[in-house]
Simulated scan of single mutants.
Amino acid sequence: MQDRARTVRARYAEVEASAYGRSWTTEEIMLGFLGDVGDLAKLVQGKAGVRPREDLDEALAHELADCLWSVLTLADAYDVDLAGAFTSTMDELDAVLAED
């Protein structure tokens, strides 16, 4: 997934450079992610019956994938080993839960 996200980000950077004279900064990518999270929140409301729509399941899957892409892209930008960080974080959470 990381390689695919990196490839798509590189293609977006080319489009951005052509359209705006530069590619997006990490801050702008983060702002885009925030917008995607807002869209995801509306779709979660839809699943709860508050914001119904015809293509809810497809839209939810799409928005979750958009959010994942943003996380992968930000991790890549900051040289975070996301797989390693995920594993260690889950290990920490498992340890905390084992104490309860």
Results as ranks from 00 to 15, higher is better:
20 Y>G: 07
16 E>H: 06
8 V>W: 12
33 F>Y: 06
52 P>R: 00
1 M>D: 11
5 A>D: 04
46 G>S: 04
91 D>G: 06
6 R>Q: 04
41 A>Y: 12
78 Y>R: 05
21 G>E: 10
59 A>P: 01
19 A>T: 15
21 G>C: 09
4 R>Q: 12
94 D>T: 10
36 D>N: 12
30 M>W: 01
35 G>V: 09
38 G>H: 10
40 L>E: 13
93 L>P: 00
64 L>Q: 09
92 E>R: 01
37 V>G: 03
19 A>V: 15
50 V>G: 10
27 E>P: 00
55 D>G: 01
72 L>S: 04
10 A>H: 05
61 A>G: 06
85 A>H: 10
77 A>Y: 02
40 L>T: 13
70 S>F: 15
43 L>Q: 06
9 R>K: 05
83 A>M: 15
4 R>C: 04
88 S>M: 12
3 D>W: 04
58 E>W: 04
99 E>K: 08
85 A>Y: 04
81 D>S: 02
23 S>R: 12
54 E>I: 00
24 W>R: 14
8 V>K: 03
32 G>F: 09
42 K>A: 14
74 L>K: 00
38 G>P: 09
26 T>K: 00
25 T>K: 00
39 D>Q: 13
3 D>I: 03
48 A>W: 11
20 Y>F: 15
1 M>C: 10
91 D>H: 13
79 D>N: 02
39 D>Y: 08
34 L>C: 13
5 A>S: 07
3 D>C: 02
86 F>G: 02
30 M>I: 00
81 D>L: 04
2 Q>F: 07
50 V>P: 06
6 R>L: 07
18 S>I: 11
23 S>K: 06
47 K>H: 07
21 G>I: 05
97 L>A: 05
67 C>T: 09
79 D>S: 11
72 L>I: 09
11 R>L: 14
30 M>P: 00
44 V>H: 07
14 E>V: 01
10 A>Y: 01
6 R>W: 06
51 R>N: 15
97 L>D: 10
83 A>F: 15
63 E>D: 04
60 L>A: 03
69 W>F: 14
67 C>L: 03
78 Y>H: 11
15 V>D: 11
53 R>Q: 14
35 G>Y: 08
99 E>P: 01
82 L>M: 10
8 V>M: 08
44 V>K: 07
20 Y>Q: 08
